[in-house]
Design a protein around this nucleic acid. Structure first.
Lengths: 237, 237
DNA sequence: CGCCGGATTGATATTGGTCAACTACGGTGG
DNA sequence: CCACCGTAGTTGACCAATATCAATCCGGCG
């Protein structure tokens, strides 16, 4: 009974207890536990079920023929791996776990039915798709224009705000279970450089990161240092 | 009477003459000509009308406070600037023209009505949204992992295939009206480096580009050199 | 003719990548 | 209990890609 999805959607559209029930209903079907570093689905697969992340972190990623890998999005609790994708013949990217992940598998028809019955949910899901698209564009700008330190800071800000929106932060800290290798794949820099950049942010007092726990003593400061503008997340309510 | 939108959507969903009529109908309302280097809409604006590109090139872009700019997507004839966005309160990015652009402005209600009447169109529009999202992810991977030459080659391949899908290529060439500064903003490299990288591709015989006209003597070769995989475009039919 | 935007080129500075070693630490089998 | 191993993190030395700065060139146009 995790409720992250409800919390997230509630930012996009005014939701009621009834909607919460409907979502819980959806999530209460098949629940699967996937261990870390496994694919939830892979490039080329045919979409069949819709996977909702209940717990743990996953990511979208693309691999080039020669093995280079780019993580293109993080999937946190409350996110959907493949909402809407069942229209496509094949997935054009993969989704893999970063930690152990618990997903709810939903049949597209069931989701469809729920959405038809609840227009507010329909709107909320629709908006969450828009936000995902906006986030992808923000990542393009992040990787294309920002220097390593800003880039990493931007990622930390995004993660913190997204986790906050689903109630997974404390005062000024949250879980951050990615390894430095994974961060390298997400930021488009080498893992050695991730390590050094991390040091810089630490010695600048902007963050601390130990034992998979991220602390941001002054979020405003980190946002300023990273030129982070939160509007693309559309967390408004 | 440009028909690019119809040609594009016809790749996503089996369309008929009737659908073509419906689309022409939609596009026949307000038509606006926007000169080069103007915004069609700007970051922070409230979405009101839906803009369809009939002719010319535009782009989505984000600017950082200090002036750095990243182009996050190209909008070619047949593309929509802001389909679906009217759900959002404010735009989180801007759309600007690269050349003189002719756009059709459609009221969301009119589009909605057409889509309700024609499920095949609804599906096609839906898919075009998915493709746009997939393209954004491809750009993340492109900028994050590829070296300058591959990156530029990837862009050329994408543009060529997208223009081909709407009937805007000849044998092995197409228009390519971007300046080197604009390419720099799209690829996340400096304009000087764009120039040198372009030289490399030219001397490697992979492309020629003169007077805004791009020629790709051997598309297979360019795709291989750029590690380009076309599946994210979902041009299947 | 003179100006201007874009393209081109050279010289030099930085950032970030690569390779390789070494540390820290938790888990596992003997 | 300890030797061993694997994963993740850290560090140093060196190298390659790309940025920056500054000229110069070129074609179109008032």
């Amino acid at each position: 009974m995790s409720d992250r999805l409800f919390q997230k959607l509630d930012h996009y559209s005014q939701l009621s207890e009834e909607h919460r029930q409907a979502l819980n209903q959806l999530e209460s079907g098949t629940i699967v536990e996937v261990e870390a570093r496994r694919d939830i689905f892979s490039h080329g697969d045919r979409p069949e079920r819709i996977n909702l992340v209940l717990q743990g972190w996953a990511c979208r990623y693309v691999t080039l023929e020669d093995g280079r890998r780019q993580i293109t999005a993080l999937l946190l609790p409350g996110d959907s791996c493949d909402l809407r994708m069942y229209l496509l013949r094949n997935f054009d990217h993969s989704v893999g776990t970063l930690t152990t992940v618990r997903v709810a598998q939903v049949r597209p028809e069931d989701l469809q039915e729920t959405l038809t019955k609840h227009p507010a949910l329909q709107k909320a899901f629709w908006m969450s798709g828009l936000v995902e698209e906006a986030t992808a564009r923000a990542w393009v700008a992040n990787i294309g224009q920002r220097a390593a330190g800003e880039r990493m800071g931007h990622l930390f800000c995004e993660v913190f705000l997204r986790l906050q929106a689903v109630g997974l932060t404390e005062e000024n800290s949250c879980e951050f279970p990615m390894t430095q290798d994974q961060m390298a794949d997400a930021l488009g820099i080498s893992s050695v450089h991730v390590n050094r950049t991390l040091m810089d942010l630490r010695t600048a007092g902007l963050i601390s990161l130990r034992d998979k726990k991220l602390t941001i003593p002054n979020l405003e400061a980190l946002m300023a240092a990273s030129l982070f503008e939160p509007d693309y997340l559309h967390i408004e309510r």
